[in-house]
Design a protein around this nucleic acid. Structure first.
Lengths: 215, 215
DNA sequence: TGGTAAATAACCCATTGGGGGATTTTTACT
DNA sequence: AGTAAAAATCCCCCAATGGGTTATTTACCA
């Protein structure tokens, strides 16, 4: 029943402190600790934790790379990133790598334990101040490029069909065959689709289609 | 020198209260107030504010639509969204529409004035609790689709130059002129860039370049 | 000193995208 | 019912893009 936790942390003192804290908690068990992520694939393979507490800064491979590897191999394992830094881009990268939550090392033990429980139950704990900065970073960096469901979906049924074929990777000729219309008609539809979606090329249209669930 | 502010707010009491607060502040001037956004194009055209204080919920066209229109026509105008709601999706949509910041109507006048100054100077004020919720919403909704800095940046200096020209919107011929090389060489570089960035077309390359700060 | 990477350049060819224009069918609205 | 708008269909022209291949020169590194 206990939450099985693995710790990746290069600092021995911190590592052992975390282990002690976790093992003195009723509903948790620290089943393994590691001082680096160089064998993270094997470590995870053999240890099978529920949650990984991951230091973002480590000698050799970083915690972000390790997070990506873990989430690729075992998407069900939650990763809680822990760091001394408050670096928007690092946090951003960690989130992209699949981290479930993000806490600071300065957070209290109670906060850490609570965050471990939260990620385990599917939540995404993150200190509000961190979240605010990251969001601003997103907006500034134009990471948020999705136009939400407003201007689109005035695609006609036929246009949606054509777009779906495009998402499948078909070229105009193949789409023409599948849709029983001429090559030129496909092109006309595609032009209309681009205008309505405000895109200029195929891959942008596909991106939007996916993001907005038009397909 | 004053920050010129336009208010869009359907509630007359709130609208006039905001106007009074702003006009009693040294560095700000409320140059116009509107009870709806149905003529927002013209309103902005004639009024030319620095910052727009926008109610998200209004009869007729919503503040989100208005925000998108404003940012399309006048990207330099900052929009500060104000609402009684704390709805992740609404906030998300507002951000996508180009809003610079997001505050609650329950925020104090001081907070509102401070936020107006922040957006005007390029910041993105947002209550930390709102940001946290929105971020979690993003992660859950898989809005964040960006592959962070992993495989790229092995671009050569020359390739980065070419990519920068592409970001500026130049075509092959113009890039060739600017870089003092032949059209064909530009094309060769571009092909290499695409391979290294794992993209298949110009706009994808530009997207990655922006997101990963290669430019 | 030989191999590798980068920069340069050229060729061929298919596909794509943008600009028109045109006709017919369907839908919608008065 | 009649008309206007939108959708669907088709065609042409042409510039730009993307992929592949090959080749030469330079520079650097092991």
């Amino acid at each position: 029943m206990n939450i099985k936790i693995a710790i990746f942390e290069d600092n021995k003192l911190i590592r052992e402190a975390l282990q002690t804290i976790i093992n003195n908690t009723d509903d948790m068990l620290c089943t393994a600790t590691f001082s680096n992520v160089n064998q993270v694939e094997d470590d995870i393979e053999f240890n099978r934790p529920d949650v990984v507490l991951m230091d973002i800064e480590m000698p050799g491979r970083t915690g972000i790379e390790a997070t990506r590897i873990i989430k690729e191999k075992s998407p069900h394992i939650k990763v809680l990133i822990q760091t001394v830094f408050n670096d928007n881009e690092k946090i951003f990268n960690a989130l992209c790598a699949g981290a479930s939550g993000y806490i600071l090392k300065s957070d209290s033990p109670e906060k850490i334990l609570q965050s471990l429980r939260e990620v385990h139950s599917g939540g995404g704990p993150m200190s509000a101040s961190i979240a605010s900065k990251v969001l601003q970073f997103f907006v500034r960096q134009n990471v948020i490029l999705v136009e939400p469901n407003t201007t689109n979906c005035d695609l006609s049924e036929r246009e949606k069909q054509i777009l779906a074929f495009m998402v499948e990777g078909l070229n105009y000729l193949d789409i023409a065959d599948k849709a029983f219309i001429s090559y030129e008609t496909v092109r006309t539809h595609v032009k209309h689709i681009y205008k309505k979606l405000h895109v200029a090329c195929r891959s942008e249209a596909i991106l939007k289609a996916r993001q907005q669930g038009i397909v």
